[in-house]
Nucleic acid binder design. Sequence first.
DNA 1: CGAAATTTGTGCGTATGTATA
DNA 2: TTATACATACGCACAAATTTC
Lengths: 256, 256
Amino acid sequence: MAPTLQARVARLLRSMIESGELAPGDDVPSEAEISRAHEVSRVTVRGALRQLEAEGLIESGQGRKRRVRKIHQYDHHAVFAESPDRPEGTDSFVSEATSAGLSASTDFEMRIEVPPEFVARRLRVKSDELVVVRDVLRFIGNEPFSQQTSYYPRSLAEELGFDSPGDIKPGTTRVLSENGYRETGTFDEIVSRMPSPAESERLVIGAGTPLMILTRTAVSGRTITRLTQTKFPADRHRILYEIGNYEDVAIDVEEK
Amino acid sequence: MAPTLQARVARLLRSMIESGELAPGDDVPSEAEISRAHEVSRVTVRGALRQLEAEGLIESGQGRKRRVRKIHQYDHHAVFAESPDRPEGTDSFVSEATSAGLSASTDFEMRIEVPPEFVARRLRVKSDELVVVRDVLRFIGNEPFSQQTSYYPRSLAEELGFDSPGDIKPGTTRVLSENGYRETGTFDEIVSRMPSPAESERLVIGAGTPLMILTRTAVSGRTITRLTQTKFPADRHRILYEIGNYEDVAIDVEEK
DNA sequence: CGAAATTTGTGCGTATGTATA
DNA sequence: TTATACATACGCACAAATTTC
């Protein structure tokens, strides 16, 4: 069977991107140009471009020229990211970003609410029991970077005194650790899916880029201390797990 | 600003899905029906449906009715999946699947080739040096499940005798382990992106579902023993990391 | 800085092809 | 085989945002 017109146009543009003829950041030819050059209707051209956008290769917006998407790459070191053994008052996020010469900031919010069903299940609290929620939206410059929501059993938060809306700045794992709840185990779940419109807006996610969602349930001895769910726009993030001893060999992991 | 027509239609259908009025597996009303009911053109309806498809909420295909997507969920236990301490001749995949009453199978292929650049870098071999490649495509029933490619330094493969195209069935980590290369450390990278057309075809991935890619570099003492890259269609997979001791509390992690 | 040109987004109509039911 | 439903493809017009002058 012959490939369709729009498939042919898409393949042509795709190969231009993959070969580097169209480099990240470059303008993609306009709909009109492609239409004229290949003598196809604008509908056909849009069909082709839509495919490339869905593949995450290009980005577009009303009035803007289409561009070949460029991808940065931030690393989330899952094993160490929330370690209590780091300088006071810093997130792993802020320290990693500033050391790379980037301006990082966070929006912080705290509230007490009835937990979503899946949170209640993992924290083993009754579904009508309240939990303390800490919400962090992280930025690099003006760009949203990740969004994180943590849930704590209310009893635990009360015991350690972070149940008041007065906010305790970064370092809840540290507070837990210093009060006899050092984490002894973590259970991480990683899934990926396309963002909802609300998530797209909040995290400024273009079409064709998925969300990675890391859900960590942490344990101290026999106590479940927290559930933290982090949403990462997948075009800017990589999640790393360094396990065991690999330091003798220094694995080289730049890019891709 | 007033939302556009297609945005309104999309929002309406989305809320029907989220509320459960349209359940997973249900037929979505046809383009013609929606067009008549809301008195909008078919182009507008298609615009709305395309958004929902890009969000991964519905699936479509020429001639078929659109359906609300249903998602299974298979768990990849990253820490234990490739442990050498499992019964001979099984992968974690086959054993987990068959114990759940599912028919699992694999397509296996072995070859020797010049490694991609990122593989050479991680394995620390010269980019013109050959590596042994083992390729596995896993199925549940007739449905592709995941695709995995492993790379081994040729010298190591020769030493352990799995460098001939004669194929060694599952259990390379076991062979390594039994010959003095028990893994002492792993370095995992997890990224997510939309699949290329080739990947979509091979793994049968519908529009609106991302790929999760897990790249593991394994180390035994001072030797880098392998690089394994696994591609998971994100609608059917969850990657889990169980770290430390959490067994006293048995975290409840069904669904979502 | 403001106006004009460009570019993409939305929206209508119509027709034909093709896979599925 | 027939009917249905989606995919592709053409034409046109205007709106909205950005880019360029």
